[in-house]
Nucleic acid binder design. Structure first.
Lengths: 104, 104
DNA sequence: CCGTATCCGTTTGGATACTG
DNA sequence: CAGTATCCAAACGGATACGG
């Protein structure tokens, strides 16, 4: 079950699901990820056929990453995770608000 | 996004979704998990409100683990992952069969 | 039966510096 | 811009032994 293993992996797929992105765009999208880790994940995902890497021979070079159809098949799992984690965040805030109410 | 982080975590939730289980039952269900890791995961999940731990004061002691409603909310994500990984396995076998066809 | 304590190898991923 | 190379601390998790 290391299908989505690796830090930031779900994030990468999530952002690519909204369209192809360049390396630096992904770095900006995913605040906190280092170039090393992003590069590592992208290579893994490319090797697994989840995404494609396309180099435009411009100066400076531009590299586009894009989900493959296979990568698209991961979306239900990704959205389910995003959805749950979103609801859990809301819940945590509600709980925090409740415990804070007596103090407030 | 380490919502389902930790080895065996999805497995634990998966088996508990089918009903409450004892510690040794989970160990048997999830072949390969060590007592240490299982114990660690269960404690984490309990702390996060994903499951409950109930001790029956018998001899020898018996401990039941059960998903909370909050834990139940994780099921869509779990099943989505299981589902996708299942389809990907099938795909891999098909691909292997295709590449093997010329040799066969 | 249900764990915990300890030791320890492996892996992970962040920081930083550097290249084409 | 798009990475790679290196170093390194921390986390992970398996094996084993032991406690309530």
């Amino acid at each position: 079950m290391q299908l989505l293993s690796g830090a930031w992996t779900p994030n990468i797929i999530w952002y690519l699901s909204q369209g192809s992105r360049r390396f630096s765009e992904l770095r900006a999208d995913i605040a906190g990820v280092s170039a090393k880790v992003l590069s590592t994940r992208l290579k893994e995902l490319e090797a697994r056929g989840i995404l494609t890497r396309t180099v435009a021979p411009t100066t400076p070079p531009s590299v586009e990453y894009e989900l493959t159809p296979l990568g698209g098949e991961l979306m239900p799992a990704i959205t389910a995770i995003v959805d749950v984690s979103h609801r859990l965040r809301v819940k945590s805030r509600e709980d925090a608000a409740i415990s804070g109410e007596s103090a407030a």
